[in-house]
Design a protein around this nucleic acid. Structure first.
Lengths: 251, 251
DNA sequence: TCAACTCCGTAAACACCGTTCACTACTCGT
DNA sequence: ACGAGTAGTGAACGGTGTTTACGGAGTTGA
Protein backbone atom coordinates (compact mmCIF):
# COMPACT_ATOMS: atom_id res chain seq x y z
CA UNK A 1 0.00 0.00 0.00
CA UNK A 2 2.41 2.60 1.18
CA UNK A 3 5.44 3.08 -1.00
CA UNK A 4 7.46 4.59 1.82
CA UNK A 5 9.82 2.48 3.83
CA UNK A 6 9.31 1.89 7.51
CA UNK A 7 11.97 4.43 8.37
CA UNK A 8 10.36 7.07 6.21
CA UNK A 9 7.00 6.51 7.81
CA UNK A 10 8.43 6.77 11.30
CA UNK A 11 10.27 9.92 10.39
CA UNK A 12 7.19 11.59 8.96
CA UNK A 13 5.23 10.64 12.03
CA UNK A 14 7.86 12.03 14.38
CA UNK A 15 8.02 15.22 12.39
CA UNK A 16 4.28 15.67 12.66
CA UNK A 17 4.56 15.08 16.38
CA UNK A 18 7.28 17.69 16.69
CA UNK A 19 5.26 20.33 14.89
CA UNK A 20 2.13 19.56 16.84
CA UNK A 21 3.85 19.82 20.20
CA UNK A 22 5.68 22.96 19.12
CA UNK A 23 2.38 24.51 18.06
CA UNK A 24 0.81 23.61 21.38
CA UNK A 25 3.67 25.23 23.28
CA UNK A 26 3.46 28.34 21.13
CA UNK A 27 -0.28 28.69 21.55
CA UNK A 28 -0.35 28.06 25.28
CA UNK A 29 2.82 29.70 26.52
CA UNK A 30 4.15 31.97 23.82
CA UNK A 31 7.13 32.01 21.51
CA UNK A 32 9.77 31.92 24.22
CA UNK A 33 8.27 28.70 25.56
CA UNK A 34 8.88 26.93 22.24
CA UNK A 35 12.07 25.35 23.52
CA UNK A 36 13.87 22.49 21.86
CA UNK A 37 14.05 20.65 25.14
CA UNK A 38 10.38 21.24 25.92
CA UNK A 39 9.36 19.99 22.48
CA UNK A 40 11.60 16.96 22.82
CA UNK A 41 10.18 16.25 26.26
CA UNK A 42 6.64 16.24 24.90
CA UNK A 43 7.53 14.14 21.89
CA UNK A 44 9.50 11.69 23.99
CA UNK A 45 12.97 12.18 22.55
CA UNK A 46 15.98 14.26 23.52
CA UNK A 47 16.72 17.77 22.30
CA UNK A 48 19.69 17.00 20.03
CA UNK A 49 17.51 14.58 18.09
CA UNK A 50 15.58 17.57 16.78
CA UNK A 51 18.66 18.52 14.79
CA UNK A 52 17.93 15.51 12.57
CA UNK A 53 14.83 17.42 11.46
CA UNK A 54 15.74 21.10 11.67
CA UNK A 55 18.94 23.05 11.30
CA UNK A 56 18.25 25.16 14.36
CA UNK A 57 15.50 26.48 16.58
CA UNK A 58 15.03 29.38 14.20
CA UNK A 59 14.58 27.01 11.30
CA UNK A 60 11.93 25.14 13.28
CA UNK A 61 10.10 28.37 14.02
CA UNK A 62 10.21 29.29 10.35
CA UNK A 63 8.61 26.02 9.32
CA UNK A 64 6.15 26.39 12.16
CA UNK A 65 5.13 29.74 10.74
CA UNK A 66 4.63 28.08 7.37
CA UNK A 67 2.43 25.44 8.96
CA UNK A 68 0.42 28.13 10.65
CA UNK A 69 -0.14 29.90 7.34
CA UNK A 70 -1.35 26.68 5.77
CA UNK A 71 -3.70 25.89 8.65
CA UNK A 72 -5.09 29.41 8.64
CA UNK A 73 -5.68 29.14 4.91
CA UNK A 74 -7.50 25.84 5.43
CA UNK A 75 -9.65 27.40 8.13
CA UNK A 76 -10.58 30.29 5.87
CA UNK A 77 -11.27 27.92 3.00
CA UNK A 78 -13.63 26.02 5.29
CA UNK A 79 -15.43 29.26 6.10
CA UNK A 80 -15.76 29.97 2.40
CA UNK A 81 -17.19 26.54 1.68
CA UNK A 82 -20.49 27.46 3.34
CA UNK A 83 -21.06 30.50 1.17
CA UNK A 84 -22.75 30.72 -2.18
CA UNK A 85 -20.31 30.86 -5.08
CA UNK A 86 -21.75 34.11 -6.44
CA UNK A 87 -22.14 36.06 -3.19
CA UNK A 88 -18.76 37.72 -3.31
CA UNK A 89 -19.38 40.30 -0.65
CA UNK A 90 -20.30 37.54 1.78
CA UNK A 91 -17.05 35.85 0.86
CA UNK A 92 -15.11 38.99 1.66
CA UNK A 93 -16.86 39.25 4.99
CA UNK A 94 -16.15 35.60 5.75
CA UNK A 95 -12.46 35.77 4.96
CA UNK A 96 -11.83 39.05 6.77
CA UNK A 97 -13.85 38.11 9.82
CA UNK A 98 -12.19 34.72 9.83
CA UNK A 99 -8.78 36.36 9.78
CA UNK A 100 -9.71 38.61 12.68
CA UNK A 101 -11.28 35.81 14.68
CA UNK A 102 -8.22 33.62 14.17
CA UNK A 103 -5.82 36.41 15.12
CA UNK A 104 -7.67 37.17 18.35
CA UNK A 105 -7.94 33.49 19.23
CA UNK A 106 -4.27 32.81 18.46
CA UNK A 107 -2.34 35.99 19.26
CA UNK A 108 0.98 34.19 19.63
CA UNK A 109 0.69 32.60 16.21
CA UNK A 110 -0.46 35.89 14.73
CA UNK A 111 2.57 37.62 16.20
CA UNK A 112 4.93 34.99 14.87
CA UNK A 113 3.57 35.05 11.35
CA UNK A 114 2.35 38.60 10.89
CA UNK A 115 4.43 40.70 13.27
CA UNK A 116 7.98 39.40 13.04
CA UNK A 117 10.79 41.18 11.27
CA UNK A 118 12.36 39.25 8.44
CA UNK A 119 15.70 38.91 10.16
CA UNK A 120 14.26 37.36 13.30
CA UNK A 121 12.15 35.05 11.21
CA UNK A 122 12.52 34.50 7.50
CA UNK A 123 9.58 34.95 5.22
CA UNK A 124 6.75 32.49 5.43
CA UNK A 125 7.51 30.93 2.11
CA UNK A 126 10.87 29.81 0.74
CA UNK A 127 10.01 30.95 -2.76
CA UNK A 128 12.24 33.67 -4.08
CA UNK A 129 9.93 34.20 -7.01
CA UNK A 130 8.37 37.55 -6.12
CA UNK A 131 5.63 37.25 -8.71
CA UNK A 132 4.18 34.29 -6.82
CA UNK A 133 2.01 34.40 -3.77
CA UNK A 134 4.10 34.31 -0.67
CA UNK A 135 2.13 31.73 1.24
CA UNK A 136 -1.08 29.81 1.54
CA UNK A 137 -2.78 32.55 3.50
CA UNK A 138 -2.03 35.08 0.79
CA UNK A 139 -3.50 32.66 -1.73
CA UNK A 140 -6.91 32.70 -0.02
CA UNK A 141 -7.07 36.46 0.14
CA UNK A 142 -5.91 36.73 -3.44
CA UNK A 143 -8.55 34.31 -4.62
CA UNK A 144 -11.30 36.26 -2.92
CA UNK A 145 -9.93 39.47 -4.35
CA UNK A 146 -9.90 37.79 -7.72
CA UNK A 147 -13.55 36.75 -7.44
CA UNK A 148 -14.38 40.26 -6.30
CA UNK A 149 -12.87 41.65 -9.45
CA UNK A 150 -14.26 39.11 -11.86
CA UNK A 151 -17.80 39.17 -10.57
CA UNK A 152 -18.42 42.83 -10.26
CA UNK A 153 -17.98 45.92 -12.39
CA UNK A 154 -15.87 48.29 -10.38
CA UNK A 155 -17.10 51.86 -9.94
CA UNK A 156 -15.56 54.32 -12.32
CA UNK A 157 -14.05 56.55 -9.71
CA UNK A 158 -11.72 53.78 -8.60
CA UNK A 159 -9.89 54.00 -11.89
CA UNK A 160 -9.36 57.68 -11.33
CA UNK A 161 -7.66 57.22 -7.99
CA UNK A 162 -4.55 59.22 -7.47
CA UNK A 163 -2.01 56.44 -7.82
CA UNK A 164 1.57 57.57 -7.24
CA UNK A 165 3.65 57.17 -10.38
CA UNK A 166 6.42 55.42 -8.46
CA UNK A 167 4.01 52.59 -7.72
CA UNK A 168 2.96 51.92 -11.30
CA UNK A 169 5.51 49.18 -11.86
CA UNK A 170 4.81 47.35 -8.61
CA UNK A 171 1.06 47.69 -8.95
CA UNK A 172 1.20 46.43 -12.53
CA UNK A 173 3.02 43.33 -11.32
CA UNK A 174 0.39 42.79 -8.64
CA UNK A 175 -2.32 43.42 -11.21
CA UNK A 176 -0.94 40.58 -13.30
CA UNK A 177 -0.94 38.28 -10.27
CA UNK A 178 -4.55 39.18 -9.55
CA UNK A 179 -5.60 38.65 -13.16
CA UNK A 180 -3.78 35.33 -13.22
CA UNK A 181 -5.64 34.30 -10.08
CA UNK A 182 -8.92 35.03 -11.82
CA UNK A 183 -8.10 33.23 -15.06
CA UNK A 184 -6.75 30.25 -13.12
CA UNK A 185 -10.23 29.81 -11.74
CA UNK A 186 -11.82 29.90 -15.16
CA UNK A 187 -12.79 33.53 -15.18
CA UNK A 188 -12.17 35.67 -18.21
CA UNK A 189 -11.11 39.25 -17.78
CA UNK A 190 -8.97 41.68 -19.65
CA UNK A 191 -6.87 44.42 -18.19
CA UNK A 192 -9.31 47.29 -18.52
CA UNK A 193 -11.70 45.83 -15.93
CA UNK A 194 -8.94 46.05 -13.34
CA UNK A 195 -7.46 49.53 -13.52
CA UNK A 196 -4.43 50.36 -11.42
CA UNK A 197 -6.60 52.46 -9.15
CA UNK A 198 -8.55 49.37 -8.20
CA UNK A 199 -5.38 47.41 -7.51
CA UNK A 200 -4.25 50.26 -5.34
CA UNK A 201 -7.57 50.23 -3.51
CA UNK A 202 -7.25 46.52 -2.80
CA UNK A 203 -3.80 47.14 -1.34
CA UNK A 204 -5.19 49.93 0.83
CA UNK A 205 -7.94 47.62 1.98
CA UNK A 206 -5.37 45.11 3.15
CA UNK A 207 -3.61 47.93 5.02
CA UNK A 208 -6.82 48.74 6.86
CA UNK A 209 -7.81 45.15 7.61
CA UNK A 210 -4.36 44.23 8.84
CA UNK A 211 -4.06 47.49 10.74
CA UNK A 212 -7.30 46.96 12.61
CA UNK A 213 -6.55 43.35 13.49
CA UNK A 214 -3.01 44.07 14.63
CA UNK A 215 -4.10 47.05 16.71
CA UNK A 216 -6.71 44.92 18.35
CA UNK A 217 -4.35 42.04 19.06
CA UNK A 218 -1.72 44.37 20.46
CA UNK A 219 -4.14 46.65 22.29
CA UNK A 220 -2.87 49.75 20.55
CA UNK A 221 -6.02 51.63 19.74
CA UNK A 222 -5.90 55.19 21.05
CA UNK A 223 -8.75 54.48 23.44
CA UNK A 224 -10.31 51.46 25.09
CA UNK A 225 -12.60 49.81 22.56
CA UNK A 226 -15.12 47.85 24.56
CA UNK A 227 -16.62 46.16 21.53
CA UNK A 228 -14.33 46.18 18.49
CA UNK A 229 -16.35 43.81 16.34
CA UNK A 230 -18.89 46.31 14.97
CA UNK A 231 -15.99 48.64 14.29
CA UNK A 232 -14.36 45.97 12.15
CA UNK A 233 -17.60 45.15 10.37
CA UNK A 234 -18.23 48.80 9.73
CA UNK A 235 -14.79 49.13 8.18
CA UNK A 236 -15.48 46.16 5.94
CA UNK A 237 -18.78 47.69 4.88
CA UNK A 238 -17.01 50.91 4.00
CA UNK A 239 -14.29 49.08 2.03
CA UNK A 240 -16.91 47.13 0.11
CA UNK A 241 -18.96 50.27 -0.35
CA UNK A 242 -16.02 52.00 -1.99
CA UNK A 243 -15.82 49.07 -4.37
CA UNK A 244 -19.42 49.44 -5.41
CA UNK A 245 -21.19 47.12 -2.97
CA UNK A 246 -23.78 49.48 -1.56
CA UNK A 247 -26.21 46.92 -0.26
CA UNK A 248 -25.47 45.65 3.20
CA UNK A 249 -25.08 41.93 2.84
CA UNK A 250 -23.57 41.44 6.24
CA UNK A 251 -24.22 37.90 7.34
CA UNK B 1 23.56 72.50 44.09
CA UNK B 2 22.22 69.02 43.82
CA UNK B 3 19.89 68.02 46.58
CA UNK B 4 20.50 64.34 46.00
CA UNK B 5 22.97 62.42 48.06
CA UNK B 6 26.05 60.87 46.58
CA UNK B 7 24.43 57.46 46.56
CA UNK B 8 21.34 58.73 44.80
CA UNK B 9 23.44 60.37 42.11
CA UNK B 10 25.43 57.21 41.50
CA UNK B 11 22.28 55.16 41.37
CA UNK B 12 20.66 57.44 38.84
CA UNK B 13 23.80 57.36 36.74
CA UNK B 14 23.97 53.57 36.81
CA UNK B 15 20.32 53.32 35.90
CA UNK B 16 20.85 55.58 32.89
CA UNK B 17 23.78 53.41 31.90
CA UNK B 18 21.69 50.26 32.17
CA UNK B 19 18.94 51.64 29.97
CA UNK B 20 21.39 52.94 27.41
CA UNK B 21 23.21 49.64 27.07
CA UNK B 22 19.93 47.73 27.01
CA UNK B 23 18.69 50.00 24.21
CA UNK B 24 21.91 49.46 22.28
CA UNK B 25 21.58 45.69 22.56
CA UNK B 26 17.94 45.84 21.49
CA UNK B 27 18.66 48.02 18.49
CA UNK B 28 21.69 46.09 17.29
CA UNK B 29 20.83 42.49 18.05
CA UNK B 30 17.12 42.28 18.76
CA UNK B 31 14.97 41.57 21.78
CA UNK B 32 16.44 38.17 22.57
CA UNK B 33 19.90 39.72 22.85
CA UNK B 34 18.76 41.98 25.68
CA UNK B 35 19.99 39.63 28.39
CA UNK B 36 20.69 40.66 31.95
CA UNK B 37 24.21 39.32 31.74
CA UNK B 38 24.98 41.14 28.51
CA UNK B 39 23.68 44.41 29.93
CA UNK B 40 25.65 43.94 33.13
CA UNK B 41 28.78 43.13 31.12
CA UNK B 42 28.47 46.39 29.18
CA UNK B 43 27.72 48.46 32.26
CA UNK B 44 30.55 46.88 34.21
CA UNK B 45 28.62 45.15 36.97
CA UNK B 46 27.28 41.65 37.49
CA UNK B 47 23.87 40.39 36.51
CA UNK B 48 22.34 40.02 39.98
CA UNK B 49 23.07 43.69 40.61
CA UNK B 50 20.39 44.54 38.06
CA UNK B 51 17.82 43.22 40.49
CA UNK B 52 18.52 46.28 42.63
CA UNK B 53 16.95 48.29 39.77
CA UNK B 54 14.35 46.01 38.21
CA UNK B 55 12.17 43.21 39.49
CA UNK B 56 12.91 41.01 36.53
CA UNK B 57 14.00 41.03 32.91
CA UNK B 58 10.42 41.56 31.88
CA UNK B 59 10.14 44.58 34.13
CA UNK B 60 13.27 46.00 32.53
CA UNK B 61 11.85 45.48 29.06
CA UNK B 62 8.64 47.21 30.11
CA UNK B 63 10.51 50.28 31.29
CA UNK B 64 12.63 50.15 28.19
CA UNK B 65 9.47 50.29 26.12
CA UNK B 66 8.39 53.31 28.12
CA UNK B 67 11.73 54.99 27.45
CA UNK B 68 11.35 54.28 23.78
CA UNK B 69 7.91 55.89 23.72
CA UNK B 70 9.29 58.98 25.40
CA UNK B 71 12.24 59.24 23.03
CA UNK B 72 10.02 58.75 20.01
CA UNK B 73 7.72 61.48 21.30
CA UNK B 74 10.70 63.81 21.74
CA UNK B 75 11.87 63.05 18.21
CA UNK B 76 8.45 63.82 16.79
CA UNK B 77 8.22 66.98 18.89
CA UNK B 78 11.54 68.07 17.40
CA UNK B 79 10.18 67.48 13.93
CA UNK B 80 7.15 69.59 14.79
CA UNK B 81 9.28 72.44 16.12
CA UNK B 82 10.40 73.38 12.59
CA UNK B 83 6.87 73.80 11.31
CA UNK B 84 4.68 76.86 11.38
CA UNK B 85 2.10 76.80 14.17
CA UNK B 86 -0.82 77.25 11.80
CA UNK B 87 0.17 74.79 9.07
CA UNK B 88 -1.68 71.83 10.50
CA UNK B 89 -1.51 69.62 7.45
CA UNK B 90 2.27 69.99 7.44
CA UNK B 91 2.24 68.98 11.09
CA UNK B 92 0.26 65.85 10.26
CA UNK B 93 2.73 64.99 7.52
CA UNK B 94 5.65 65.57 9.85
CA UNK B 95 4.34 63.40 12.65
CA UNK B 96 3.21 60.55 10.43
CA UNK B 97 6.34 60.53 8.32
CA UNK B 98 8.42 60.79 11.47
CA UNK B 99 6.64 57.78 12.89
CA UNK B 100 7.26 55.76 9.73
CA UNK B 101 10.89 56.84 9.47
CA UNK B 102 11.51 55.92 13.09
CA UNK B 103 9.80 52.54 12.74
CA UNK B 104 11.84 51.61 9.70
CA UNK B 105 15.07 52.79 11.31
CA UNK B 106 14.35 50.99 14.59
CA UNK B 107 12.38 47.87 13.72
CA UNK B 108 13.28 46.08 16.95
CA UNK B 109 12.07 48.95 19.07
CA UNK B 110 8.95 49.26 16.96
CA UNK B 111 8.24 45.58 17.45
CA UNK B 112 8.72 45.82 21.20
CA UNK B 113 6.46 48.81 21.65
CA UNK B 114 3.89 48.45 18.90
CA UNK B 115 3.73 44.75 18.15
CA UNK B 116 3.84 42.96 21.48
CA UNK B 117 0.88 41.33 23.12
CA UNK B 118 -0.04 42.71 26.51
CA UNK B 119 0.78 39.52 28.37
CA UNK B 120 4.31 39.27 27.01
CA UNK B 121 4.85 42.95 27.73
CA UNK B 122 2.59 45.10 29.82
CA UNK B 123 1.21 48.31 28.48
CA UNK B 124 3.58 51.16 27.85
CA UNK B 125 2.20 53.22 30.67
CA UNK B 126 1.36 52.12 34.18
CA UNK B 127 -1.68 54.36 34.36
CA UNK B 128 -4.90 52.50 34.81
CA UNK B 129 -6.90 55.61 34.10
CA UNK B 130 -8.32 54.83 30.71
CA UNK B 131 -9.38 58.38 30.03
CA UNK B 132 -5.77 59.47 29.99
CA UNK B 133 -3.33 59.11 27.14
CA UNK B 134 -1.46 55.86 27.41
CA UNK B 135 1.99 57.15 26.74
CA UNK B 136 4.12 60.00 25.49
CA UNK B 137 3.86 58.87 21.89
CA UNK B 138 0.09 58.91 22.04
CA UNK B 139 0.27 62.41 23.47
CA UNK B 140 2.02 63.76 20.36
CA UNK B 141 -0.46 62.18 17.99
CA UNK B 142 -3.33 63.40 20.10
CA UNK B 143 -2.02 66.94 20.14
CA UNK B 144 -1.71 67.04 16.39
CA UNK B 145 -5.17 65.59 16.05
CA UNK B 146 -6.35 68.28 18.44
CA UNK B 147 -4.80 71.06 16.37
CA UNK B 148 -6.28 69.50 13.28
CA UNK B 149 -9.72 69.75 14.81
CA UNK B 150 -9.39 73.20 16.30
CA UNK B 151 -7.91 74.86 13.24
CA UNK B 152 -10.12 73.57 10.55
CA UNK B 153 -13.82 73.24 9.92
CA UNK B 154 -14.44 69.60 9.17
CA UNK B 155 -16.41 68.74 6.03
CA UNK B 156 -20.05 68.06 6.65
CA UNK B 157 -20.03 64.53 5.31
CA UNK B 158 -17.76 63.40 8.11
CA UNK B 159 -20.51 63.99 10.60
CA UNK B 160 -22.81 61.79 8.62
CA UNK B 161 -20.46 58.85 8.66
CA UNK B 162 -22.06 55.56 9.46
CA UNK B 163 -20.80 55.13 12.98
CA UNK B 164 -21.81 51.82 14.58
CA UNK B 165 -24.07 52.40 17.55
CA UNK B 166 -22.01 50.08 19.74
CA UNK B 167 -19.10 52.46 19.40
CA UNK B 168 -20.94 55.59 20.54
CA UNK B 169 -19.88 55.30 24.16
CA UNK B 170 -16.21 54.61 23.42
CA UNK B 171 -16.04 57.28 20.75
CA UNK B 172 -17.67 59.80 23.04
CA UNK B 173 -15.00 59.12 25.65
CA UNK B 174 -12.30 59.59 23.04
CA UNK B 175 -14.05 62.72 21.82
CA UNK B 176 -13.78 64.17 25.32
CA UNK B 177 -10.07 63.34 25.44
CA UNK B 178 -9.56 65.05 22.09
CA UNK B 179 -11.52 68.12 23.15
CA UNK B 180 -9.58 68.26 26.41
CA UNK B 181 -6.35 68.13 24.44
CA UNK B 182 -7.47 71.14 22.44
CA UNK B 183 -8.65 73.21 25.39
CA UNK B 184 -5.46 72.36 27.29
CA UNK B 185 -3.60 74.16 24.54
CA UNK B 186 -5.77 77.23 24.86
CA UNK B 187 -8.12 76.42 22.03
CA UNK B 188 -11.83 76.89 22.43
CA UNK B 189 -14.19 74.43 20.86
CA UNK B 190 -17.55 72.99 21.66
CA UNK B 191 -18.79 69.56 20.89
CA UNK B 192 -20.59 70.26 17.66
CA UNK B 193 -17.36 70.99 15.76
CA UNK B 194 -16.19 67.46 16.51
CA UNK B 195 -18.98 65.11 15.58
CA UNK B 196 -18.64 61.43 16.35
CA UNK B 197 -18.12 60.72 12.67
CA UNK B 198 -14.97 62.81 12.75
CA UNK B 199 -13.69 61.01 15.83
CA UNK B 200 -14.35 57.76 14.04
CA UNK B 201 -12.47 59.00 11.02
CA UNK B 202 -9.46 59.89 13.13
CA UNK B 203 -9.48 56.40 14.57
CA UNK B 204 -9.67 54.92 11.09
CA UNK B 205 -6.76 57.12 10.05
CA UNK B 206 -4.65 55.66 12.83
CA UNK B 207 -5.63 52.18 11.64
CA UNK B 208 -4.34 53.00 8.17
CA UNK B 209 -1.15 54.73 9.29
CA UNK B 210 -0.27 51.99 11.74
CA UNK B 211 -1.25 49.31 9.24
CA UNK B 212 0.99 50.68 6.53
CA UNK B 213 3.98 51.14 8.82
CA UNK B 214 3.66 47.71 10.40
CA UNK B 215 3.21 46.00 7.04
CA UNK B 216 6.33 47.74 5.79
CA UNK B 217 8.39 46.87 8.85
CA UNK B 218 7.28 43.24 8.75
CA UNK B 219 7.41 42.92 4.97
CA UNK B 220 3.81 41.77 4.73
CA UNK B 221 2.51 43.68 1.75
CA UNK B 222 0.93 41.34 -0.79
CA UNK B 223 3.58 42.24 -3.35
CA UNK B 224 7.10 43.59 -3.31
CA UNK B 225 6.89 47.34 -2.91
CA UNK B 226 10.09 48.73 -4.32
CA UNK B 227 9.42 52.26 -3.14
CA UNK B 228 6.89 52.43 -0.33
CA UNK B 229 7.39 56.09 0.54
CA UNK B 230 5.14 57.62 -2.11
CA UNK B 231 2.53 55.04 -1.19
CA UNK B 232 2.62 56.26 2.38
CA UNK B 233 2.50 59.89 1.34
CA UNK B 234 -0.36 59.20 -0.99
CA UNK B 235 -2.26 57.58 1.83
CA UNK B 236 -1.65 60.62 4.03
CA UNK B 237 -2.87 62.90 1.27
CA UNK B 238 -6.03 60.87 0.98
CA UNK B 239 -6.62 60.89 4.73
CA UNK B 240 -6.16 64.64 4.85
CA UNK B 241 -8.28 65.05 1.76
CA UNK B 242 -11.14 63.24 3.45
CA UNK B 243 -10.81 65.72 6.29
CA UNK B 244 -11.15 68.67 4.00
CA UNK B 245 -7.53 69.45 3.13
CA UNK B 246 -7.71 69.46 -0.62
CA UNK B 247 -4.60 71.44 -1.33
CA UNK B 248 -1.43 69.41 -1.48
CA UNK B 249 0.85 70.92 1.09
CA UNK B 250 3.28 68.06 1.09
CA UNK B 251 6.63 69.27 2.26
C1' DT C 1 22.34 -14.20 4.29
C1' DC C 2 25.49 -11.12 5.55
C1' DA C 3 28.20 -7.16 5.24
C1' DA C 4 28.25 -2.22 4.29
C1' DC C 5 25.98 1.86 4.62
C1' DT C 6 22.65 5.30 6.11
C1' DC C 7 20.12 7.31 9.48
C1' DC C 8 17.70 8.30 14.20
C1' DG C 9 18.47 8.93 18.72
C1' DT C 10 21.39 9.32 22.95
C1' DA C 11 24.57 11.01 26.58
C1' DA C 12 27.96 14.19 27.71
C1' DA C 13 29.68 18.48 27.42
C1' DC C 14 30.07 23.70 26.61
C1' DA C 15 28.67 28.25 27.09
C1' DC C 16 25.10 30.99 28.14
C1' DC C 17 20.65 32.34 30.35
C1' DG C 18 17.24 34.27 34.54
C1' DT C 19 16.99 34.14 39.24
C1' DT C 20 17.99 33.41 44.33
C1' DC C 21 20.81 33.65 48.32
C1' DA C 22 24.35 34.67 51.59
C1' DC C 23 27.68 37.93 52.23
C1' DT C 24 30.68 42.20 51.90
C1' DA C 25 31.61 46.72 51.62
C1' DC C 26 30.02 51.37 51.69
C1' DT C 27 26.70 55.31 52.58
C1' DC C 28 23.53 57.68 55.31
C1' DG C 29 20.56 59.47 59.12
C1' DT C 30 20.66 59.91 63.85
C1' DA D 1 30.25 56.91 66.01
C1' DC D 2 27.14 53.61 65.35
C1' DG D 3 23.25 50.93 63.47
C1' DA D 4 20.32 50.65 59.36
C1' DG D 5 19.95 50.38 54.78
C1' DT D 6 21.81 49.72 50.14
C1' DA D 7 24.76 48.57 45.86
C1' DG D 8 27.28 45.06 44.45
C1' DT D 9 29.58 40.30 44.48
C1' DG D 10 30.25 35.23 43.85
C1' DA D 11 28.32 30.85 44.06
C1' DA D 12 24.74 28.10 42.95
C1' DC D 13 20.35 25.99 40.62
C1' DG D 14 17.84 24.71 36.85
C1' DG D 15 17.11 25.93 32.34
C1' DT D 16 18.55 27.02 27.36
C1' DG D 17 20.75 26.16 22.12
C1' DT D 18 24.15 23.59 20.07
C1' DT D 19 28.14 20.30 19.05
C1' DT D 20 30.35 15.97 19.45
C1' DA D 21 31.19 11.07 19.61
C1' DC D 22 28.87 7.00 19.65
C1' DG D 23 25.44 3.04 19.48
C1' DG D 24 21.87 0.59 17.42
C1' DA D 25 18.34 -0.08 14.09
C1' DG D 26 16.72 0.15 9.13
C1' DT D 27 18.06 -0.34 4.42
C1' DT D 28 20.44 -1.88 0.50
C1' DG D 29 23.15 -4.68 -2.64
C1' DA D 30 25.84 -8.84 -3.67
Amino acid sequence: MTEATRRERLRAETERDIRRQARALLVEHGRDAVTLRAIAREVGITAPALYRYYDSREDLLRRLADDICTDLAAELDADLADIAEDDVSAQVYAVCRGFRRWALAHPQEFTLVFASTEDTLGSCAPTDDRSQVGDQFGRVFLEVAGRLIASHPLPDDLGDLDVPADLHADLTAFQQVLLATVTDRGGVVDEHVLPLGAVYHITQSWVRIYGHVALEVFGRFPFAVSNPEPMFDSMLAQILGEMGFRHLSRP
